[in-house]
Simulated scan of single mutants.
Amino acid sequence: MDRIVEIAIVLVSDDGRIEEEWSTLVNPQRDVGPTRIHGITATDVLAAPTFQDVMGRVLGLLEGRVLVAHNADFDVRFLLAELRQAGKEVADPTRVPQLCTMRWSTAFVSSSSRRLIDCCAAAGVDLTNAHTAAGDARATAELLRHYLRASPPPPPWQDVMHQAVAYRWPTAAGFGEALARSRAQVVSEPKHAWLERVVSHMPRAGDAQVDSYLAVLEMALLDGFLAEHEKEALVETAQNSGLDRDTVLDLHKRYLRAMGEVALEDGVVTESERADLKGVAALLGLPSDAVKQALEAVREGSHEGAYALSASAIQLEAGDRVVFTGDMNRARDEWERDIRRFGLETGGVTKATKIVVAGDPNSLSGKAAKARTYGIPIVTESAFARLLEKQGSGQA
């Protein structure tokens, strides 16, 4: 079942004035779907409330109001499905008071199509941040205002307004209201809060048990991306190993230096390799000059506290199972065709699965959840492509 990943409600007065706006990302507790369209990743919604968390707020805002949307039937179906999922049935789904700005568009605008963007253009409405819940809802509110101005009073949907006053949505008694989480909050949040948890909760001193931490770190950074479950694993490993703050930060520097050694094996650091080094340094919360220092240490032959970095933490062999999950940049059948050339197979996630490839390693899909339970690595498409490239070079 498709789920809501973002919801926005704009309250409008009878004369079309915007009275209140509210929006939030929603954790669908499953894969987030086509990120390329709505721009929302699994990472964005990990800390977002579920629909059940905000259901009380949603129902409170809808009470006594006409639900207005562009292609209203589509939005209403999603809303009713989420309410059913939360155990709240609407008494008569066919009588939900709704107004569809798409259906009314032929009466009030002359546009090339009935799409929201075209109707807004014809009405002189600025549609900013299209395909975001808040952007589309605000534009729909402005489009409704255009309809109201173009229509002699009372508006032709006066009967629906009367129905809305009498209509009763289900109650959400017993459900608290979770804090909304906007897209802006996701963008503005510190990217290394997890690192603060690693270093701030460590004891001031302790025996350095570094091997297990480095093993987890190497596997986590296989794809140059630290998923949330990988950050949790690093925090837990650091705590269980009794690592102090300075030791953890030093391990990150040593890991970066080890990457620098691999990059300089041929005497040249390519732009791609330098970008990888900078990306890892940023993920580990290291300063901007950390890459330069790491490469200089390698060139000077400094091996103080060196850590032997394997060329790849994962080696694929014929018969290994590779599983794909989530919305991906490349067509699934293309990936499956490529892996078959290497004698690899695909299917569902089992304990024997070697690796899971995801559009977003924080994917909330069932496959990703099972992979984490089994301790199976989840990597990005780009990392898997590099892995296949090395595989091809090895075969050659």
Rank of each mutant, 00 (worst) to 15 (best):
E6V: 04
I7A: 00
I18Q: 14
E21I: 11
Q29H: 05
R30Q: 15
V32L: 03
R36M: 10
T41E: 07
V45T: 09
R57N: 01
R57P: 01
G60V: 04
A69Y: 03
F74C: 02
D75N: 12
V76N: 01
V76Y: 00
V76L: 05
A86W: 02
V90N: 00
R95M: 08
P97L: 06
S105C: 09
S105A: 15
V109M: 03
R115S: 11
L116M: 05
C119V: 15
C119T: 15
C120I: 10
A122K: 08
A122H: 10
G124S: 14
D126N: 13
L127G: 04
N129S: 14
H131E: 05
A134R: 09
D136M: 12
A139C: 10
L144I: 13
H146V: 15
Y147T: 09
L148C: 08
A150Y: 01
P156V: 02
M161R: 15
R168E: 14
G174L: 12
A178C: 08
R181N: 00
A184Q: 12
V187N: 01
E196Y: 08
V198R: 09
V198K: 01
S200T: 09
G206C: 13
A208N: 07
M219K: 09
D223P: 07
D223K: 10
G224R: 08
H229M: 02
E230M: 07
N240G: 10
D244C: 12
R245T: 15
L249R: 11
L249Q: 15
L249T: 15
D250V: 10
R254N: 14
R254S: 14
Y255P: 13
Y255H: 15
R257E: 14
E265W: 06
D266M: 06
V268S: 07
V268A: 09
T270V: 08
E271P: 00
E271I: 05
R274V: 00
L277P: 03
L286K: 09
D289A: 14
A290Q: 04
V291D: 12
S302P: 00
H303Q: 13
G305E: 05
G305F: 13
A308C: 04
A311E: 14
S312Q: 15
L316F: 02
G319Y: 05
V322Q: 08
F324T: 06
D327W: 11
A331T: 07
A331N: 04
E334C: 04
E336C: 02
K354E: 03
A368R: 08
A368V: 11
K370E: 06
K370I: 04
G375I: 12
G375A: 02
I376V: 12
P377W: 07
E381A: 06
E381C: 07
A383D: 05
A385I: 12
R386I: 01
R386W: 02
R386V: 11
